[in-house]
Amino acid sequence: MANHKSALKRIRQNKKRALHNKYYAKTMRNAVRKFRALTDKDEAIKLYPTMQKMLDKLAKVHIIHKNKAANLKSSLALHMNRL
């Protein structure tokens, strides 16, 4: 167990941040799943910019890796264009 007051605080902060990051990562995964399930091209075109924005924001704050965001955006664009 931690012996210093600052270490105890760090543990509390890490738990809180992990929960916050987990929420946004799960929300992102659900949004990607929803986007991939789309069959209407017009709806996909309308939703794609918001997907891009979400992925870029999550990469910026290191919730996901920047290359993962780029790969997801690329695969979603391919899906959208194939509709």
Score class of each variant (00 low, 15 high):
Met28Val: 06
Glu43Arg: 05
Thr50Asp: 15
Leu72Gly: 09
Met51Asn: 04
Leu19Ala: 15
Met80Gln: 10
Met80Tyr: 00
Lys16Met: 11
Arg17Leu: 15
Asp42Cys: 05
Asn21Cys: 06
Arg36Ala: 06
Tyr23Gln: 13
Ala59Tyr: 08
Asn14Met: 10
Arg10Cys: 08
Ala70Lys: 04
His79Cys: 05
Arg36Asp: 14
Asn14Thr: 12
Met54Lys: 05
Val32Arg: 10
Ala37Lys: 01
Leu47Cys: 03
Thr27Ser: 12
Asn67Leu: 11
Lys26Ala: 12
Glu43Trp: 07
Ser74Cys: 12
Tyr23Trp: 09
Lys53Met: 13
Asn71Met: 06
Arg17Trp: 15
Ala37Glu: 04
His65Asn: 11
Arg29Asn: 14
Leu83Asn: 01
Leu8Pro: 07
Leu19Cys: 10
Lys26Glu: 15
Ser6Gly: 00
Leu8Lys: 05
Leu55Lys: 01
Ala31Val: 08
Ala37Thr: 10
Phe35Thr: 06
Val32Ile: 09
Lys57Pro: 04
Lys34Tyr: 13
Ala59Ser: 10
Met80Pro: 04
Phe35Tyr: 06
Gln13Ile: 11
Leu83Lys: 02
Leu83Thr: 04
Ala31Met: 06
Leu58Ser: 00
Lys46Thr: 11
Thr39Ser: 09
Val61Ala: 03
Arg82Ser: 15
Leu19Thr: 11
Lys26Asn: 07
Lys22Asp: 14
His79Pro: 00
Arg82Tyr: 02
Asp40Met: 02
Asn71Arg: 14
Lys57Trp: 03
Arg29Cys: 07
